[in-house]
Computed example of a mutant assay.
Amino acid sequence: METETLDLIDGIIVSLTRTAREAADAAARELGEPALATAFELSTLHKRYAKKKAEEPVQEG
């Protein structure tokens, strides 16, 4: 049950983060202020994901 709850919370966090990023992108376009979008980039998250994928063993089949 605890894992399910954590998965649900993780999903909510990801959803809210994506919504905030989309709103920042829209505001940046509307106001002509690219720094707004930059502040909400998910670059740290993407770097971690890319690093994790690079460390996975290659499966041959």
Rank of each mutant, 00 (worst) to 15 (best):
58 V>D: 03
7 D>T: 07
38 T>P: 00
39 A>F: 08
33 E>P: 01
46 H>K: 11
50 A>P: 00
40 F>E: 06
7 D>I: 03
24 A>T: 04
26 A>S: 08
9 I>G: 00
55 E>K: 14
38 T>D: 11
41 E>D: 15
6 L>V: 06
20 A>S: 09
45 L>K: 03
24 A>D: 01
34 P>G: 02
53 K>A: 07
33 E>W: 05
20 A>K: 07
35 A>L: 06
57 P>M: 04
55 E>A: 14
33 E>T: 10
19 T>N: 09
31 L>R: 06
46 H>G: 01
41 E>M: 10
48 R>C: 02
13 I>L: 15
38 T>K: 15
60 E>V: 10
21 R>W: 09
31 L>S: 12
34 P>K: 02
12 I>S: 03
32 G>I: 01
36 L>K: 00
22 E>D: 12
10 D>H: 06
6 L>Q: 08
38 T>E: 15
44 T>L: 08
49 Y>H: 03
20 A>L: 12
49 Y>L: 11
47 K>C: 06
6 L>R: 08
33 E>N: 10
47 K>E: 15
19 T>V: 04
4 E>H: 05
61 G>R: 10
8 L>R: 09
18 R>M: 11
56 E>M: 12
3 T>M: 05
45 L>Q: 07
57 P>K: 10
1 M>Q: 04
30 E>Y: 10
24 A>Y: 01
32 G>A: 01
27 A>H: 03
16 L>I: 10
33 E>K: 11
21 R>T: 10
7 D>Y: 06
13 I>Q: 08
17 T>G: 08
24 A>W: 02
59 Q>T: 14
13 I>W: 02
32 G>F: 00
9 I>P: 00
21 R>F: 06
